[in-house]
Computed example of a mutant assay.
Amino acid sequence: MSVGPKPGDSFPEDVVFEYIPWAEEIDGFSACGVPINYNASKEWADKKVVLFALPGAFTPVCSARHVPGYMENLPKLREKGVDIVAVLAFNDAYVMSAWGKANKVTGDDILFLSDPDLKFSKSIGWAALDGYKSHTGRWAIVLDHGKVIYAQLERSKNVLEVSSAEAVLGAL
């Protein structure tokens, strides 16, 4: 993909994130799972997927509006044929897992994925530099059987317009 995916682009064949799968026995904050690789290219090849990214777990806009918007609209996304909803940030898999727990997300309702080295975000040109540190930009991509059908990057860090659940629903 070039800078910023566009509708009609194919999702790359080598996208691997890290995550800790939800399990009832590790649902509490004091219990940790083991991070594993999540081969998004393989897992998403035959599915309709909403992948949204944000600057970081436990941050104001991300925690107050971005993730809650997807949680509230999950039934509507499912009605539109979305098989998988995933959130991506640069935080490590442990932090992303804890954030899922803090949001009371169970099972695979929303996958909390890690792009710790920003490999994917940088590959599409949607990583962000905020002062001295890099992080994931705020964006949303919708895939349908490996093809991009929606891809939008927010105009600035604390803006939630084109990557919100409502915006994605409007595009489906």
Results as ranks from 00 to 15, higher is better:
3 V>C: 07
5 P>K: 08
6 K>F: 06
8 G>S: 12
14 D>A: 09
14 D>K: 05
15 V>Q: 01
19 Y>N: 02
20 I>D: 07
21 P>H: 07
23 A>R: 14
23 A>C: 02
27 D>N: 13
29 F>I: 12
30 S>T: 12
31 A>V: 12
32 C>I: 03
32 C>M: 13
33 G>D: 03
34 V>A: 11
36 I>K: 14
43 E>H: 11
45 A>N: 05
45 A>Y: 02
46 D>Y: 02
47 K>T: 08
50 V>E: 02
51 L>M: 14
52 F>L: 09
53 A>Q: 04
59 T>Y: 00
61 V>G: 07
62 C>K: 01
64 A>W: 00
67 V>W: 00
70 Y>H: 05
74 L>S: 11
75 P>Q: 02
77 L>M: 14
82 V>N: 02
86 A>W: 00
89 A>L: 07
93 A>T: 01
95 V>A: 04
96 M>G: 05
97 S>P: 01
99 W>T: 10
100 G>N: 02
104 K>Y: 02
106 T>Y: 00
106 T>E: 13
107 G>R: 05
107 G>Q: 06
108 D>S: 13
110 I>M: 11
110 I>L: 15
111 L>W: 01
112 F>N: 06
113 L>F: 02
114 S>P: 08
115 D>W: 07
122 K>A: 13
125 G>E: 08
127 A>C: 11
128 A>V: 15
129 L>G: 13
131 G>D: 09
134 S>V: 09
142 V>Q: 04
142 V>D: 03
142 V>R: 02
142 V>E: 03
149 I>A: 08
150 Y>H: 04
154 E>M: 12
156 S>H: 12
161 E>M: 04
162 V>W: 00
163 S>K: 01
169 L>A: 12
169 L>I: 12
170 G>M: 09
